[in-house]
Design a protein around this nucleic acid. Structure first.
Length: 405
RNA sequence: UCCGGGGUAGCUCAAUCGGCAGAGCGUUCGGCUGUUAACCGAAAUGUUGUGGGUUCGAGUCCCACCCCCGGAG
């Protein structure tokens, strides 16, 4: 289901195509989140127009509402949300554990917001599965490897992710190791259930855990690869800093290059601009992340400005009355539509929903062109050059015109 | 002119028996990486309409004045 087209000579980057039940996906690709069955503020036609071929839905959230039975009755997730391209569904593991780890929920990524109302909602973690309290109606719920796969079967996604335990950063090596081993056992149960009852055309990705431990990542990568799953996702704690994250990813793809060189690799939850560039160089094929869309709704636009963290906060007072677009020459609906930073600033301050939509469109456009540039760079055998230009502040999508390619 | 209500942060309003003058919104700043997230966090901002009085202590009680709202004439 995955064909590699070009391998970069100087790093692990490659271009390829995922052949899925609902069409092909050019890789490396970014995957926008449609957690609850919609890419927030957008319609499917918008997401298609931006150039995306794959989006991610979430088993945990869709289980709680509206429920897999309803989605199945309505014709499956594709038909329900009117998206006819490919869908990958996350298994719910991350959600269950991020709400359950309470005070350390913020440490799953090594940082982030403190645990909120969800803390303590987890009731028990056992070999069989996880019991927790629903944030929707307070009912006690249960997710196991089998039930996660069965929900994903009802949703009818193209790619299902196995149910895993996502361990936080600040737990002992021993806990990380025991948890990883249980995740491996859950992987086998997921694959067994899928082999017996999974929908035709749906492929399954295993998930590598192992925290920030070099040997555990290697062990997990090879265990997941040997399970025979169709693709491999990298999850769990990737450390506290970007440098550590890149190291952890590197250990993992290094091992995967050895044991499963031709299987697709998905990096879970990563989507900062420089992390995407680094991830591609480390041999990642697909990424999903809340960041571009969430930042958009929070009024932060992505711009080719590495020194500013690739961001400009349009809500800030300094954007009041500014006539310039977010990014000169950008082809996104917000910039090419002639909307000024000053207008977007006003919309965001006024809490006009159109502002959230326009910045979301811009950010997803920016990321889509970024991934396009990286793919073009790999295929042209000039990834290093393209990556350097992007890291130096070249505008994605404008690279060719700027003479860099 | 009389009667009643009111004047506290930029705005709308709290403040127990007289006991450290607060909240929400707004503003500024910071944050957001397998989305419970159009969200979260922090900070700044006061001659409590004015002038007097009582009191250890007044936004609060007393007197005078100014302004706003409603009613009566």
């Amino acid at each position: 289901m995955f064909s590699v087209r070009t391998r970069s000579p100087d790093c692990r980057a490659r271009t390829g195509t995922l052949h899925l039940a609902h069409g092909g996906v050019q890789t490396p690709a970014f995957v926008p989140l449609a957690t609850k069955g919609s890419v927030k503020t957008l319609e499917p036609r918008d997401v298609v127009a931006l150039g995306y071929e794959l989006i991610l839905g979430n088993t945990f959230h869709l289980l709680l509402a509206p429920g897999p039975e309803l989605v199945a009755e309505m014709g499956g997730l594709h038909e329900f949300m009117r998206w006819d391209r490919a869908i990958i569904t996350d298994s719910g593991g991350f959600q269950v554990f991020s709400m359950g780890h309470g005070g350390v929920a913020d440490e799953i990524k090594g940082r982030g917001r403190p645990a909120g109302d969800g803390a303590g909602a987890i009731l028990s973690i056992a070999e069989d599965g996880v019991r927790f309290r629903s944030y929707v109606d307070g009912r006690e719920r249960f997710i196991s490897p089998e039930s996660s796969m069965s929900v994903q079967a009802a949703l009818g996604s193209d790619i299902a992710l196995v149910f895993d335990e996502c361990t936080p950063f600040h737990v002992s090596r021993e806990y990380t190791e025991r948890s990883m081993e249980r995740t491996h056992r859950w992987l086998e149960r997921c694959l067994r259930w899928h082999a017996a009852s999974g929908p035709r055309g749906q492929v399954v990705y295993g998930i590598v855990q192992g925290g920030v431990e070099h040997d555990l990542r290697r062990i997990s990568a090879s265990a997941v690869a040997s399970s025979g799953c169709d693709g491999i996702a990298i999850g769990g704690s990737l450390g506290q800093e970007k440098a550590q994250m890149h190291e952890v990813v590197s250990w993992t793809t290094d091992e995967l290059e050895r044991v499963a060189p031709d299987r697709p690799r998905h990096l879970l939850g990563i989507g900062d601009v420089d992390d995407l560039i680094a991830g591609v160089e480390l041999g990642i094929d697909t990424f999903d992340c809340a960041l571009p869309t969430r930042l958009g709704r929070h009024g932060v636009a992505l711009v080719p400005d590495p020194a500013a963290g690739w961001r400009v906060d349009l809500v800030k007072g300094r954007c009041r009355g500014v006539r310039d677009p977010i990014l000169e020459g950008c082809g996104c609906p917000a910039c090419s539509g002639g909307f000024s930073r000053g207008y977007l600033h006003y919309l965001l301050r006024a809490r006009e929903l159109t502002g959230l939509r326009l910045v979301t469109l811009h950010n997803l456009w920016f990321i889509a062109r970024l991934m396009e540039d990286l793919r073009a760079g790999i295929d042209a055998g000039r990834l290093a050059e393209v990556a350097a230009a992007l890291r130096g502040g070249a505008a994605p999508g404008l690279l060719a015109e700027a003479g860099a390619a």
